[in-house]
Design a protein around this nucleic acid. Structure first.
Ligand SMILES: [Mn+2]
Ligand SMILES: [Mn+2]
Ligand SMILES: [Zn+2]
Ligand SMILES: [Zn+2]
Lengths: 149, 149
DNA sequence: AGCTAGATGAACATCATTTTCATTTGCAGC
DNA sequence: GCTGCAAATGAAAATGATGTTCATCTAGCT
């Protein structure tokens, strides 16, 4: 709770600085995001939040996600299905590997690949501003005696 | 033209093998794709093809893109705006750098980054099946006397 | 407690893409 | 070349995620 409360408080001061208000709905959605350990979409966030406050509307979820994103409080990702998914932004940068059988999303980070991307952009005459990197894979089968089947 | 005709013929035999038909519309769309050197979306393809045959419909473009994709004749990409864009598949694998000022799409390929992705997936216990890598950058300014401004 | 601009909920609008369905057409067999 | 029929098409309607409108509510200030 302490951790979640700290994030909510942090965000409240950010809002103040932008002349925006901390509403019940924003508090609620922020709490749902802070407690999530996955990458829910708007409907998923709505479902979780609606369970705690059945007066919440889906419109407000969408609006709130834009506010949260513009304040840098969350990150938005659209994997292969094109649906926007969200996660809290107070973690170091990482990319995602998606299990194509289960849909599970696994986070990883690699300084080597980050550096390599910067270098590639530089060789093309560009400064790298951001990137999207998603790996789609299938669980390796445990090795069998006699090697690969 | 010879090159384009070869691609159309190649695709026609693929279709035959799948019990599908080579129609005027598919021929036309395939031609537009073969002549494109960019990454047009469905509407863009429709516009170019419609100029050559004003009886074509946008529905058919969408349907044809699915057929072409399922046959492996084209690749589909959805960059940040989420709209599907297409390109002919008979070229070696490459990834894309998008100029965030102009929207220009630049192709590149790097064996090093391909290998690194495989290694990262492997370390997580996965076989890499496919990936999505997009770099978003801004043109480097030419160096000035006195270094970075 | 009262004021007011920002926020909300509900309904409706948008936009890319898909689906329905009546009509057309590719093409295999004669 | 003509027929038959399943596949393909065009036009219109449906879908689904997301955005917008507008009347009403409320956070935050006095
Ligand atoms: Mn993540
Ligand atoms: Mn390309
Ligand atoms: Zn990264
Ligand atoms: Zn690649």
């Amino acid at each position: 709770m302490t951790e979640v409360d700290r994030r909510v408080a942090d965000f409240e001061s950010q809002l103040k600085g932008a002349g925006l208000r901390m509403t019940q709905q924003r508090r609620l959605i922020l709490r749902v995001l802070a407690e999530a350990d996955d990458h829910p979409d708007a409907k998923g966030i709505f479902t979780r939040a609606f369970a705690l406050d059945p007066t919440l509307s889906l419109s407000t979820v969408y609006r709130t996600m834009k506010v949260l994103e513009s304040q840098g409080a969350i990150e938005r990702h659209a994997f292969e299905d094109g649906i926007s998914r969200y996660e809290h932004a107070d973690q170091e940068h990482h990319d995602h590997l998606i299990d194509i059988d289960s849909g599970e999303v696994i986070e990883f980070s690699s300084d080597a690949i980050e550096e390599l991307q910067r270098r590639i952009a530089a060789e093309l005459g560009y400064d790298l501003v951001r990137h999207r990197l998603e790996l789609y894979g299938r669980k390796k089968q445990p090795a069998r005696k006699g090697g690969r089947k």
